[in-house]
Design a binder for these strands. Structure first.
Lengths: 145, 145
DNA sequence: ACTATTCCTATCGGATTAGTATGATTAGAG
DNA sequence: CTCTAATCATACTAATCCGATAGGAATAGT
């Protein structure tokens, strides 16, 4: 029941992009140094965020990444679902493929469904702006996980 | 971010024990057949529940397991924490060993702490009785996951 | 003694995690 | 037009975790 490094690092990257947004593109190398995570690993993660449309990229010299929307319009839920796959606590809530034939009478399914609901509501209610709104411009990149 | 089979099976076992409680001990073989899970695997899981004091066991012929408390006094949270280890979504919330030196200023820690809080509140608010209270005695063992 | 049960410890294949490695492609600067 | 800094794409890998399986010892009722 743990969030993997992909989800955690993705959130840190997105917050980093929000904090250091100056209108232009931010190279991955800068994020890598501030967050102390290898650029190669961040590359994999931000690629999926880019394909999902959460960040825009620019190749070549002076290239990099930037948020494609304002921080108040990007939620932690979006970021985590893209990188973690799904936040459903059990597979049978994910899609019809994994549903079991006895789901109609399952005694535990409503419990898991309820858990999924509160998790979804929580992560979808947190925007990138919520993470950075109390942070002075000087205090950037304060992460621990 | 998935609950493992250990947590799911543990919950199913405990519900099974609650549903079939007739005062005596219920052999693991019966649970195994009703739930369609190998007895050998259930053995491992119920051992940890037994060591934690959630079930009482009796060895030898006519032995088995039974709940050590009434269903309304056993929560899903207890069961899941024993079998899953911890429901904290990130390791630095688990214990001091995993805490990072920058936890005071971490921008993501309050978010994860909040997620842990709602998960804890939800699972601790669900008792075994909640799972079985609407189940006719005839309809036993209806699980899908 | 026999049998049904829990208890204990070890093993194991496969999947997942958390990266690392290599190189191609792109685009601005000189 | 070349150099360089960057993204993009794909493959690989070591380590860990998951989901069991296996074999036998201990216990207790008949």
């Amino acid at each position: 029941m743990k969030i993997s490094t992909k989800g955690r690092y993705a959130l840190r990257m997105m917050i980093d992009l929000a904090l250091h947004d100056a209108g232009g593109f931010i190279p991955l190398k800068d994020i890598s140094e501030r967050q102390d995570i290898t650029a190669k690993y961040l590359e994999q993660i931000i690629t999926s965020l880019s394909k999902a449309g959460l960040v825009k990229s620019s190749r070549g010299n002076n290239g990099g990444y930037r948020l494609s929307r304002a921080p108040e319009n990007i939620t932690a839920g979006e970021i985590l679902r893209i990188t973690e796959g799904s936040l459903a606590p059990v597979a049978c809530l994910d899609d019809e493929v994994n549903q079991c034939p006895r789901s109609e009478t399952c005694l535990t399914l409503p419990f898991w469904k309820g858990l999924q609901n509160i998790i979804d509501a929580y992560v979808d209610g947190a925007t990138l702006y919520d993470f950075i709104k109390n942070t002075p411009a000087a205090d950037t990149g304060n992460f621990c996980i």
